[in-house]
Design a protein around this nucleic acid. Structure first.
Ligand SMILES: [Mn+2]
Ligand SMILES: [Mn+2]
Ligand SMILES: [Zn+2]
Ligand SMILES: [Zn+2]
Lengths: 147, 147
DNA sequence: GTCTGAATTGCAAATGAGTCGCAAGTGCAA
DNA sequence: TTGCACTTGCGACTCATTTGCAATTCAGAC
């Protein structure tokens, strides 16, 4: 959530290569965009923002999926049928981790909540307690503005 | 979650008419199906189950949306990019209410959790506290079976 | 019970997000 | 530098959902 200072081009290249991905221009553009996004970004958003720079829609999409497969980003549907991508924690722990998300039913705004905002009552529930099996928490409702 | 005994045909008709919807055959079939489903149902599931009875996909779909617009059902995407529908609480309070859902990343199984399983720490957060603004809670992870 | 206008249906065509195939271009390790 | 696997661009394609429209069916008024 807290985002470290903007990464240098070399930081970006390194992160890609560490994941066995080539550091191509469109790939770097996508990755940079994710680094700078404060909340998960949809494919459409990405494609629109990057279109002026000339990158193809399919390429952007493939890259988003590549980053996801490589464990650099995470692909989620926050409940509104739109895929959104966000960076995963960096090797050095400097990026996004497992925090809950909130999506506004009305305006679609997505926000990241601090970890710990939501507590799962650990009812015994099989070998592993529920809490231990949950990897993602999503809330929906009206945001402050739309309320 | 707890489902009252199966509703009579008249119960169904009444519920539709109370919502200013005509009680047509395909509509009743859809509504009945929702009453009997233990967890949210996807359109595909619905359409497949009702196809043998001869109802058109588009009709099933429109009905699902009509029920949703009328406040009888709720349409959610549990995080897997599939729309699912479930009945909303009946006028007499006998049906589904606001409980959290859990979806398995692995097998896609959806389960309804008891209310109260998830607690939202009510940090002050605008005029209304977060807790008051949340209308839906979704968890994702591995179900017991897939764990 | 009939009648009538509005809601609903069925079926086919349209939409749109997301994917894929493939020939041309590029990163990178040797 | 070179070679080749990895990527890109672009068009074609898929598949879920939506829409247009004429035909049909409700529901409420005679
Ligand atoms: Mn986030
Ligand atoms: Mn439920
Ligand atoms: Zn909002
Ligand atoms: Zn499972």
């Amino acid at each position: 959530m807290a985002r470290a200072g903007k990464p240098s081009l070399d930081d970006l290249k390194t992160r890609l290569r560490d994941a066995d991905l080539r550091a191509t221009a469109p790939r770097l553009a996508v990755l940079r965009f994710l680094y700078e996004a404060p909340t998960p970004v949809s494919h459409a958003e990405l494609a629109d923002k990057l279109a002026p720079e000339g990158w193809d829609r399919a390429t952007v999409y493939r890259n988003l999926n590549d980053l996801t497969d490589a464990g650099i980003a995470r692909k989620t549907d926050l409940g509104d049928h739109v895929w959104r991508f966000e960076l995963l924690k960096d090797t050095d722990g400097s990026h996004t981790d497992a925090h809950p998300h909130f999506v506004c039913d009305e305006c679609g705004e997505v926000s990241c909540l601090p970890e710990g905002t939501v507590e799962i009552k650990s009812t015994r529930n099989g070998p592993l307690r529920l809490k231990e099996r949950v990897s993602e928490i999503q809330l929906k409702g009206r945001c402050e503005r739309c309320n």
